[in-house]
C-alpha cells in the first residue's frame, strides 16, 4: 500500500470514527441518522481501497442507502415520540 493510499485510509478511518461519535453523542435524530449513513459510506470506500468491490457495493447499497432511507421513513412516522 503506497503512502498516499495509506494517508487516505487513515483519513477515512478518522472520518468514520468522527461520524460514529456524532451519531452516538449528537442530540438531533436526523443528523444522527445521516452520520450513521456516513459511517457506512466511508466503510464502503475503505472496502474498495482494500480491493473488495463486491463487499463495497453491498455496504453502499444496504448500509448506506437502504438503512438510512428506512430510518428516515420510520422517523417520519414517529414524530412527536422523540423524548422516550
Amino acid at each position: 500500500m503506497s503512502g498516499l493510499v495509506l494517508a487516505l485510509t487513515v483519513l477515512l478511518a478518522a472520518a468514520m470514527i468522527g461520524a460514529a461519535l456524532v451519531a452516538v453523542i449528537g442530540k438531533s435524530l436526523p443528523i444522527a441518522i445521516l452520520s450513521a449513513g456516513l459511517v457506512s459510506l466511508v466503510a464502503s470506500v475503505l472496502f474498495l481501497l482494500l480491493a473488495s468491490p463486491d463487499v463495497a457495493m453491498t455496504e453502499a447499497a444496504i448500509g448506506s442507502g437502504l438503512t438510512t432511507f428506512l430510518f428516515f421513513f420510520i422517523l417520519g412516522r414517529m414524530r412527536g415520540g422523540e423524548h422516550d
Binding site: P53, D54, A56, M57, T58, A61, I62, G65, L66, F69, L70, F72, F73
Partner: peptide, 20 residues
C-alpha cells in the same frame, strides 16, 4: 463486481424512493 444481492438491494432502494 456486484451481483444478485447488490442488484436486488439497489432495486429495493428505487422502490423505497417511490414509496417516500
Amino acid at each position: 463486481p456486484g451481483g444478485g444481492f447488490q442488484g436486488g438491494a439497489i432495486i429495493a432502494s428505487g422502490v423505497l424512493l417511490i414509496l417516500l
